[in-house]
Amino acid sequence: MESKVGEKFQYNNAGYILLGLIVEQISGFSFTDYIEEYIFKKAGMKNSGYYEFDALPKDTALGYIDLPNGRWKTNIYSLPVKGGSDGGAFVTADDMVSLWDALLNNLLLSQEYTRKLLTPFTQTKKLTGFYGYGIWIEKRNNSVVKYHIMGYDPGVSFHSAFYPNSLITTVICSNKSDGAYNIAREIEDELLLITH
Rank of each mutant, 00 (worst) to 15 (best):
G83H: 06
I135A: 07
E190Y: 13
W72Y: 12
F158K: 00
D59V: 04
N13W: 00
K116S: 10
I135K: 03
V144Y: 03
R140W: 04
S98N: 14
G63W: 06
W100L: 05
G28E: 13
E190P: 00
Y113V: 00
S166D: 13
K46H: 09
L18E: 04
G151T: 06
D189Q: 08
L19G: 04
Y113E: 08
A102P: 00
Y133R: 01
V23T: 10
D86I: 01
A61M: 09
I172L: 12
G28Y: 15
K42N: 09
L109Y: 09
N182E: 12
G151H: 04
L62Y: 15
N142M: 09
N69R: 03
D101R: 08
S27N: 07
V81D: 10
G70Q: 11
Y131Q: 15
F29R: 07
K125T: 11
A180Q: 02
G151P: 08
G179M: 07
Y131I: 15
R71S: 12
G129R: 06
V91L: 13
M45D: 03
Y77Q: 12
H159R: 05
F158D: 13
L193F: 10
T74E: 14
S160L: 08
N12R: 09
I22F: 07
T122C: 08
E2M: 05
I172R: 02
S166P: 05
L117G: 00
I194H: 08
T122E: 14
E112K: 13
G84E: 04
V23P: 05
R185Q: 12
V91K: 07
I39C: 00
S157P: 00
K126N: 12
D54T: 11
A102G: 03
V171R: 03
W72F: 09
G44D: 12
Q10N: 11
N47W: 08
F9V: 13
F9W: 13
K8Q: 09
Y163C: 01
F162V: 09
K176R: 05
K42H: 05
A55E: 10
N105A: 06
H196E: 11
N175P: 02
L192N: 05
L104Y: 06
Y50P: 05
T74F: 12
S143L: 13
T122D: 08
E24F: 13
D94R: 08
G129M: 08
H196V: 07
G70L: 10
D33V: 11
